[in-house]
Nucleic acid binder design. Structure first.
Lengths: 229, 229
DNA sequence: TTACTTAGTGTAAAAATTACACACTATATT
DNA sequence: AATATAGTGTGTAATTTTTACACTAAGTAA
């Protein structure tokens, strides 16, 4: 670390990969750029870190400005700093991911002034992305794939009350493979972090499934032990 | 990402947690600062990212300048950006770790101009560190603990040819617990990434152990599969 | 009442993990 | 030459975990 801090022409930003789940598909939030460079391209939402913000605060603010959401599980996962990643100068960016349940209750607040529009697009059919955002997204997906095996992040994608089938569905989408129903249930229940409710699913035209809730207290007690898929 | 890049008074640095192993202990490289702030304190070696360097390039350069070493396995693991972490201004720092075998063949080149001196200090008895460097170190240790369970990074701490007992020793030091000799050997050999050599250990006053080498080719073939401890 | 759709459940085989102790070999010492 | 010393190297049985696999139950819609 230097004693005398040089005045450098560099910018530090945060880009966010917001994974959303609507009950069917995994999606990410993208904005359509309205200015050069990469005018009309889709890009990850991001912004510059404020002078008096910590990184996590900054990420929360950015998420809030872009979606109106607060209290979402977010984590930094990688810094991208290729000198040529931004055509207009040196921009080092720190990538965060967040997991969000879509639809139903809250609608997302429209995006501020960044873009023509913002949209949740299914990850199975993404457009070409501006800058190195494809790389940032790829690494983010990789990250949550690994993370979901060890940490209870899947619940962030689901409503507070959910069925085991929905939970399994999330795992299958993120991991990109089918899981065995009985083995999945056996294992997930054996972790002891789910609370079975007295309630049943509603509005389905078939046998209603039991609802569960993620039990943060029980999870806190487990801390240190590794969950594993 | 902004269109117009503001001119910000922020500095972006890299700090390095260099883990070294001398056959006995795990150590990290620290420098003793010669200037304010934190004059006379021990600190992690670090430096500012150059304008035309990628982050990894910058980390490699810094490692080289501080130790004379090249070709070392290094990885970024976390960005620290508390607005008050540096008393003289906003400095966001990206932490890297590296694993290095100490002693024997190459001696480390002395440190450039950063400090009064540099030293490898055993992690069991670290001094108070400048800035938030204790936090950076803690997170680094946590990181390699997790990493060593899944990736073949232990070999970086050992000479090219090593015995299974030495390898076990490294695992025990990093994980901070004793492992069963027979089970350890069974498992590590079963991964199939070790090549047994025709050579024996030399210079010991007891039965000489067989030497092994890490087989990068075999490991490359395994890629995708997760090793697990 | 029947057809449809998803919920919910158990077991046996295979694989992985754990716990555990002694004989072997090379050298150093007398 | 005999002995002491110190670390090497090996197998098995018990337990736990993982995997593969298929049918009945419950609720809704026609």
């Amino acid at each position: 670390m230097e004693q005398i801090l040089p005045h450098l022409d560099s910018v530090f930003s945060i880009d966010c990969v917001l994974f959303g789940f609507d009950g069917k598909e995994l999606k990410i939030l993208l904005i359509e750029r309205n200015e050069e460079p990469f005018k009309d391209w889709w890009a990850l939402p991001g912004n510059i870190v404020g002078a008096d913000e910590s990184l996590d605060q900054s990420a929360s603010r950015i998420l809030y400005e872009l979606t109106g959401l607060r209290g979402i599980y977010m984590e930094q996962y990688y810094a991208f700093g290729d000198p040529n990643r931004h055509p207009q100068g040196r921009v080092i960016t720190l990538a965060y991911y967040a997991l969000i349940r879509l639809g139903g209750d809250k609608e997302l607040r429209p995006i501020s002034n960044y873009a023509k529009r913002a949209n949740w697009l299914p990850i199975t059919d993404l457009p070409k992305l501006a800058f190195d955002h494809q790389k940032i997204y790829d690494k983010g997906l990789e990250k949550i794939k690994r993370r979901i095996k060890h940490q209870p992040i899947a619940f962030e994608l689901l409503p507070e009350k959910f069925t085991l089938t929905q939970l399994q569905h999330v795992y299958e989408l993120v991991l990109g493979k089918k899981l065995d129903k009985r083995n999945f249930r056996k294992k997930i229940v054996s972790f002891g972090v789910l609370k079975e409710l007295d309630e049943k699913q509603k509005g389905v035209s078939y046998r209603a499934a039991t609802l569960y809730r993620f039990d943060k207290r029980k999870y806190a007690k487990l801390f240190g032990k590794e969950i594993s898929f």
